[in-house]
Design a protein around this nucleic acid. Structure first.
Lengths: 237, 237
DNA sequence: GTGACTAAAACGTCATACTTAATTGGGGTC
DNA sequence: GACCCCAATTAAGTATGACGTTTTAGTCAC
């Protein structure tokens, strides 16, 4: 997977970050809470430079704001850079994971159909092949408790769609989709095999893209998205 | 506007950041370029701490990666955290502004209709009022070279829609939309008054939301988005 | 030619001294 | 008693020197 985000990278500042970030996004420090550098310094038993660098990163995510004479104050949640991959991951690991999963799924539902439509227009032959390959992979692993293998193909499929759209903003949501799909499989603990209807839809999307049928690719992807929302009891708008 | 992003905040590290960030996103340092801290230290005439903190922030945006013995290397553009507000602003200020504007407009076109649909279901009476107020403001300022006043209402209108959707991921795109709209007005230098059709559409969206007609709000917003894409010669999918 | 060992280069960490800005509170004036 | 101004305090910001760690590259022996 990706390098940043998971596990305490290397370096002390990353360790501090991976302790403070989740704590803040989990709401352990309510908005307005104050962190003092020297207190953290003692708490983590590291030097000031390390704390300062961690704080700078948190500040760049808009999780905190640092002001002289007052300290580092935690910002309200609606100011956080919620598109930052690490913030997303921290929040998905924390208590408001369900809420976060819903938000992200709604975002997916808006973006992926559009991406699929564009992909139908712009996908390269290689990307079409990848798409077909992963759709077939999903079919092959859709029965008999092969959830992990299925997940791999599912993630890859959506990643290719987003990348093939040719839009960099869409492409960058690949990690988000991966997190959501992983979360769904592992948390919502699906002991049951995937919905066959969803599997079929993926195959048909791959077909539509291959045939350059943008409208159909978009509509089919919208159906996939509707299914994902239904799973989370989100009313279909 | 927002605190972070514009102008060299306060503090030396912010000044370094506002010099390096735009340079990197502008492609002045091709992917793989190496920056050495002591070189930067001398170049900006600041201490190591300052450089290191700036580097940490660039690293958190995935613009660079720092490795021992080799230095700070610039990452390829497709790894950047393109949703970071500062990255967005830097890129909009740089040479690939047109490309960036297109990407963001396509993103808007995917997100805003969905947001409008949700807003119709969830907007509070206050938000409905704000919406109407800004739509009327747009009407009032749509003639006679009042582009700046018009822009204010336009931005506010779209911000309310995104916020009223009740989805935090959508809400956070308010700044992006603001940048795009501002960019369109100031760069694409519109000497002409806004398109009357677009103005009318905004009024009708406000109506639809007030009347809780999600489908209509979504469809009308889709029309607005199509107009924005047409302005940039993006083929409507 | 292959292997291991060594040396150097760059970032990473620590400790400390000093600077700057903002808040607080006291004292003075009206 | 209310208000304003100034100074003291506090915590972040900056600078600097020393040392640790990792990675690359080069050399030397076999």
């Amino acid at each position: 997977m990706d390098k940043q985000g998971l596990g305490a990278g290397q370096g002390l500042h990353a360790r501090v970050l991976d302790s403070l970030g989740p704590a803040i996004t989990a709401g352990e420090y309510p908005a307005g809470s104050v962190l003092r550098t020297d207190e953290l310094e003692e708490r983590f038993d590291v030097s000031r430079s390390v704390i300062r660098e961690a704080i700078r990163v948190l500040e760049s995510m808009n999780l905190v704001a640092s002001r002289r004479r007052v300290g580092v104050t935690v910002l309200p949640a609606d100011e956080w850079n919620v598109y930052d991959p690490r913030v997303i991951r921290w929040r998905l690991a924390g208590p408001d994971r369900p809420r976060q999963l819903r938000s992200l799924t709604v975002l997916r539902s808006a973006v992926e159909p559009a991406a699929a439509g564009l992909a139908a227009l712009r996908a390269t032959p290689e990307q079409c092949a990848e798409l077909t390959e992963h759709a077939l992979g999903m079919v092959a692993t859709s029965r008999g408790q092969q959830l992990d293998a299925y997940l791999v193909h599912d993630i890859a499929f959506h990643r290719v769609i987003l990348r093939a759209s040719g839009n960099e903003m869409f492409a960058r949501l690949g990690d988000v989709v991966a997190e959501v799909l992983t979360g769904r499989t592992h948390h919502h603990v699906m002991f049951t095999d995937p919905d066959p209807a969803a599997v079929t839809l993926h195959v048909r999307v791959a077909e539509a893209v291959r045939e350059r049928d943008a409208a159909r690719a978009e509509a089919l992807t919208r159906e996939i998205a509707a299914g994902a929302m239904a799973e989370l009891d989100i009313l279909a708008p």
